[in-house]
Write a protein that binds this DNA or RNA. Structure first.
Ligand code: DGT
Ligand code: MG
Ligand code: MG
Ligand code: ZN
Length: 639
DNA sequence: GCCGTTTTCGGCCCGACTGTTTTCAGTCG
């Protein structure tokens, strides 16, 4: 995945690079330990990225910079502040070195950062390389070689300098730079002013589905699929990736034509026989889209390549090499000859993805798990097979335990909800309207709640094909107390407890607040635990391990709110939950019929965490679910 | 810089497209 960052307006957080924050970094670090923003990891990740970029700009070994970049990624994947990985320096050192990609050097640098708030090598890079060059590397089309030339030859130190030099005409005189390069750089700079960071999946997916369906209607015989981070179920999307296959080259050309001539296209970046790249502007968002074209006989290989992740691709290709074979987007081939597809080589596999895994002696790894964290060599082949056998699937989900009706802010009446649940094949539906503190969402006072519950129960009594449960989504107030007293909660079939306000609390306060809800014997599900909105609001940053431990102890389920704007808990936090083995509830939080369709986003996120179906209460038979709802301690670990 | 049931040294994935190039470097996926 590209690590595209926002370039305009300049919003880089305070780091050594920006030089805007000269206060004692060690004390800033101490504050960050209890900071909601988990800035220790962010700052370290940035330091390693700049180390990598700096080496590239200085023309050093690209393998070394790639290593630094891998360390940066590993730090970004952590779910807790890095200095809290161990209780003492020795343990911290051991835990760090155990992380793949983090070796002796990175461990030394991380410990140096934790102790002194900076890394000498990083500081040295910052002294040698102007800080604005890191931003320049984010400009599409500008790599380390070009940035270095601009810097050395024209003294360009940042984006503003580049803009000026483009107008001055001097860029054209540089080696390997001409008129078109200048024009392309102008477009790229303009694109960056219109683009935000990575696009939340909730915005990207509808756009990608529309592109996919458009291509399908151009060539109904073609196989067209969404690939890339969208297919892997990532919560934010760098660009839209599509794969299309058709046996007829003329049909492939027509697909490419349609793609680059779409009304939303602002720039055509590349338009070849096998791939096209465009920039789109749609719904106020600017984003790149890539289309990969090929033969149906190689569709599996192409889809696999374009689905990624990059790390997974490299891994598979390395495994192929180990077998004396070669894997690329055209298939798996015998031997180590480059471009075997051009030399009449017949692929051993390639029409379907599954063939590739078969031929390499691997179990089929679904797209959501094609990430570094699930590297078979890391997880172990046996453990991986076990994980895959237990992995949750959307069709195993038979219950939705968090939905809203017109009693609060939902769009549908109870009767309508029942009809929707039946049509969608649910066995269990819980109606969980808001509690009294959520005034804007039409939260119910206690009397209104009791009437509502009575209405639900009356309706439920007449149903034989659907278990209709009376519940509530009760606010977790800032101090951890709940918005209804215990005796009211005890009257409900299902209690989802969720934070809705005070979502900027510090880590310790947030953790205490959520722990209180988890420990309440009436609370079944901790709803959207952090309250984050993807790409918009960070929400609470609690100690996830502490939540998981408590949830596990009390039999409380942690929610994976399937609304793609939320996806809360996120994949990284859920991986912790899966490790601990606590219960998880995947609920849509639907306020309308269409929002029941959010389930697929939730399941993809759950699969990214390797969630076993059995840990997900929504897969349980109604009888088992009822037992747990009656006394959640039956779900406690060790019982 | 990192890593190892083919290695503790010597590798590190593989290919498309563009622009500027007389034969390919750079960037990107
Ligand atoms: N073998 C190989 N495949 C790559 C490489 N870079 C990208 N790919 C493949 C895997 C990616 O998932 C796929 C699409 O590339 P993208 O840059 O769009 O990445 P992705 O969609 O994973 O993340 P994104 O959200 O777009 O940042 O192309 C690479 O360097 N080598
Ligand atoms: Mg992508
Ligand atoms: Mg892409
Ligand atoms: Zn809510």
């Amino acid at each position: 995945m590209s690590a595209r960052r926002r370039v305009f307006p300049s919003s880089r957080p305070c780091t050594a690079a920006t030089g805007c924050c000269t206060t004692d970094r060690a004390s800033a670090l101490a504050a960050a330990r209890n900071d909601v923003s988990n800035d220790v990891n962010k700052a370290l990740q940035r330091a390693f990225e700049e180390l990598a970029d700096g080496l590239d700009l200085l023309g050093e070994s690209s393998f070394r910079s790639a290593s630094h970049r891998r360390v940066a990624r590993a730090i970004g994947d952590l779910t807790a502040p890095i200095d809290q990985l161990g209780d003492d320096p020795a343990q911290l050192r051991a835990r760090l070195e155990a992380i793949p990609g983090i070796g002796e050097g990175a461990t030394r640098r991380i410990l140096e950062f934790v102790e002194h708030g900076e890394i000498a090598d990083h500081v040295e890079i910052l002294e040698r390389v102007p800080g604005g060059l890191f931003q320049l590397l984010q400009v599409p089309g500008l790599g380390p070689k070009a940035v270095r030339t601009l810097w050395q030859e024209l003294g360009v130190q940042g984006v503003d300098d580049l803009r000026r030099e483009l107008d001055s005409g001097r860029v054209e005189s540089l080696p390997r730079m001409g008129r078109k390069t200048v024009q392309n750089l102008r477009s790229a700079l303009e694109f960056l002013t219109r683009t935000r960071d990575r696009l939340p999946v909730a915005l990207a997916m509808p756009l990608a589905l529309d592109l996919r369906d458009g291509l399908r209607s151009v060539e109904p015989e073609a196989r067209v699929e969404i690939a890339g981070s969208l297919r892997r179920g990532v919560e934010t999307i760098g660009d839209l990736d599509l794969v299309a296959a058709h046996h007829d080259p003329a049909a492939r050309r027509r697909l490419a034509e349609a793609f680059v001539n779409d009304g939303r296209v602002t720039d055509v970046l590349a338009s070849g026989e096998r791939k096209c790249s465009v920039r789109l502007s749609a719904g106020g968002h600017a984003i790149q889209a890539d289309l990969r074209l090929g033969e149906p006989a190689a569709f599996g290989a192409a889809l696999h390549y374009f689905t990624g992740s990059k790390e997974h691709n490299v891994l598979m290709r390395q495994i192929a090499i180990g077998f004396g074979r070669r894997l690329n987007e055209y298939g798996l081939f015998e031997g180590d000859e480059p471009r075997p597809q051009d030399h009449g080589g017949t692929p051993l596999a390639g029409a379907e993805e599954a063939e590739l895994y078969d031929a390499l002696g691997l179990p089929f790894i679904p797209a959501e798990l094609r990430e570094e964290a699930f590297d078979p060599a890391r997880v172990g082949l046996e453990a991986l097979r076990d994980l895959l056998a237990r992995l949750i699937d959307e069709d195993q989900i038979v219950a939705d335990l968090h939905t809203h009706s017109t009693a609060s802010d939902g769009r549908h009446s109870l009767e309508e909800l029942v009809a929707i649940a039946r049509r969608r094949g649910l066995a269990v539906l819980a109606v969980t309207d808001h509690s009294r503190s959520s005034v804007l969402a039409g939260g119910l006072e206690i009397d209104a709640l009791r009437e509502h519950v009575a209405a639900i129960r009356e309706l439920a009594a007449g149903l034989d094909d659907l278990v209709l449960l009376a519940g509530a989504e009760v606010d977790i107030l800032p101090d951890g107390s709940l918005d209804y007293p215990d005796e009211v909660l005890a009257e409900l079939d299902v209690v989802v407890a969720s934070p809705h306000v005070s979502l900027s609390q510090d880590r310790a306060t947030a953790t205490r607040r959520l722990l209180a809800a988890i420990r309440n014997p009436h609370v079944h599900i901790l709803g959207h635990p952090t309250g984050r909105i993807v790409g918009r609001r960070r929400g609470l940053q609690p100690d996830i391990d502490a939540l998981c431990a408590a949830a596990s102890e009390h039999g409380t389920a942690l929610e994976l709110n399937a609304n793609p704007r939320r996806l809360d808990l996120d994949d990284a936090a859920l991986r912790r939950a899966v490790e601990v083995g606590c219960l998880v509830a995947i609920d849509t939080d639907a306020h309308s019929d269409a929002q029941f369709g959010y389930l697929s986003y939730g399941v993809r996120t759950a699969r990214r965490a390797g969630l076993p179906a059995d840990s997900c209460v929504n897969t349980w038979e109604p009888e088992r679910l009822r037992d747990w709802l009656a006394d959640k301690s039956v779900g406690a670990r060790g019982r």
